[in-house]
Nucleic acid binder design. Structure first.
Lengths: 343, 343
DNA sequence: TACCTTTGCTTAAACGTTTAAGCAAAGGTA
DNA sequence: TACCTTTGCTTAAACGTTTAAGCAAAGGTA
């Protein structure tokens, strides 16, 4: 149980004040080069490690950024986090990652934990369950920068980084129409969540544009888990007239749909074309490979980090909100390629 | 820019001392119920949130546990973390997750970050690159509990939670032998890493036991990324006499091998049986599904957390090390089922 | 020589909590 | 009534750092 070395220990060895040591370690210009060298040497010898708690308390900032994601084990979120971390580390910030597991209660706990840890800012993507934004208001009311990405509510009036969901949906439907599909179903996310609502609107408007009838049976709301994807696909297959294409608003749910189609020996894309959303790696691994939307996760992560840094760099609190909407990219794969067009 | 509420603000409102407020908030028995109630009420009104930095500094413990993993976007690690978090949260601890991305330098930085943040303990799984254990010694020398899981070096003499790699390998080879395989290749991890070394030993000993010749061409060292799995599979296919089974020491590399076999229209398991390690979800998603080893990640996470808690609960530093070795489970799937046995 | 500036430190207070020690008032006991 | 105990607080110091303010000594300038 050895006591940790403090600034005072160094000061004692050199017979100078603790204040001088602190300044020397921060390369203050009012300290002589000779003293600095001596301090650095003693610090090394004693294996000195600064106490973050003390300096954070004194300075009123922790240099920690809190991150809340629904889960880390999707490629999208882990890539966002990785890129965010890179930018923030360079600026001297470290991140604390927390997961909500799509649970509202867990998300509230995460917010409390992060506030308790005195983070300097919070970057979050909301859980599916989250409707009540009171907890997020709590962050704002404390004057802590809050940046949302992917899943974010604009009612909160905070900075947001995401992709153009409406356009992406439009792109998917146009692609399917080009492949000759006439009866395009959409397994969408929760309508109340903005990004999924936008995807639904894009789907509906694109159908209209191409004079395809909007059949209510073909538009289904889903939690977008793999399991729910399976169920909703089964539901679609039970229809009197089956769809000839299914666009699923998330890759994991698309995978569930994919499994059902495979099990029932329904051919993709000949019988039913399939499109997912998110470009998770497994979409390129399964057979047939699944068409999906690349969301530019690395860009999202970097932009989120940079947006946070803007807050802390420029002291005069800025007035304009950042709403960064990136263009997504359709990655066409076997599950939707040359469907009816070839026949 | 509103100032945050402190204990002193509450004290001022009630005209009592800050010390009394602190005790009231911690339900100290020497404070009257009347005062406690008043304090709690004022705390709520002023939206008081305790300052973790100050209490941690004063108490000398942060109630934070640092976690280092190679990456979070594999199901194994994310499941370990999730279970670890659950146990630790219940005990009043929060976790800080960091990723090494298999890089030694990143890992060292992570350790510094965590020590800097004054974590009360560190739970880690090492990067592939890590050979020099000096940085981990640094943790030990500070008297901070260190617990390793999955990838851990026993030279460090710290607590460890993992599975029985030797037996798992043995199990795999026996399974393949039962399916009629005679020429079993092994794409293993780095020999210097203990878990991969154990898997190699299990493989070698099982071959011996069944009087199968140990062909050096069939035992290949790999970084076990998907890309490297591809390369090593191509290497195996280029041999004069091809193997009739390939056991890959990690699922991601197994996936690379899987892709090559699929691309070259080599049938699994008829031409070559394939077995992975880790039971990542995609092994059950691809076609054919891939046989793999379930490592009981949830159990590993819980045990790691409990081991840490043992350190902080019982003050008298315990003498015996925990080495928890769980039995893994072979999950047989299509890629290895009834290979030659049926012919 | 008299004053001013610069250099290189020191002193003291502060960040927000916790906790050991102490003390007055109230209540209990013989 | 005299003393003891309990109750319910207060006072003061501490955790390890940073920073504003100050000051002596050295060096520079007229």
């Amino acid at each position: 149980m050895k006591k940790k070395t403090t600034i005072k220990d160094i000061a004692n060895v050199l017979n100078i004040s603790a204040a001088a040591v602190s300044k020397a370690l921060h390369d203050d210009s009012r300290i002589s080069e000779k003293t600095k060298k001596a301090v650095r040497q003693v610090a090394k010898n004693l294996n000195y490690q600064p106490n973050h708690l003390a300096s954070a308390l004194r300075k009123g900032k922790s240099n920690l950024v809190g991150v809340i994601v629904p889960r880390t084990n999707s490629n999208f979120f882990s890539s966002v986090i990785q890129n965010m971390e890179e930018v923030l580390n360079k600026a001297g910030y470290n991140i604390i990652i927390t997961q909500s597991n799509e649970s509202y209660i867990k998300e509230c706990n995460n917010i409390d934990t992060l506030l308790f840890t005195q983070v300097d800012g919070i970057i979050a993507s909301m859980a599916n369950e989250t409707i009540d934004l009171g907890y997020y208001e709590k962050i704002k009311s404390k004057g802590i920068p809050l940046i949302l990405f992917d899943r974010g509510e604009n009612d909160l009036n905070v900075d947001y980084i995401g992709i153009n969901d409406y356009n992406s949906s439009h792109m998917i439907v146009e692609h399917l129409v080009k492949q000759g599909c006439k009866r395009i179903a959409h397994i969408g996310g929760f309508k109340r969540t903005r990004i999924f609502n936008n995807r639904i609107r894009g789907y509906v408007d694109a159908l209209k544009k191409h004079n395809l009838p909007l059949d209510n049976e073909l538009l289904i709301e889903s939690s977008l888990t793999t399991e729910d994807g399976r169920e909703k696909m089964i539901q679609l297959l039970a229809l009197k007239t089956r769809p000839d294409a299914v666009y699923v608003a998330g890759d994991y749910a698309a995978l569930g749909a994919f499994q059902v189609l495979n099990e029932q020996q329904i051919k993709m894309p000949e019988d039913i074309a399939l499109v997912g959303f998110g470009n998770e790696p497994f979409t390129a691994m399964v057979s047939p490979t699944i068409t999906s939307i690349e969301q530019h996760s690395s860009e999202i992560g970097q932009q989120a980090a940079k947006t946070f840094l803007q807050y802390v760099k420029q002291k005069p609190v800025k007035q304009t909100l950042n709403k960064i909407i990136l263009n997504a990219e359709l990655v066409v794969r076997d599950s939707s390629k040359n469907n009816k067009a070839l026949l």
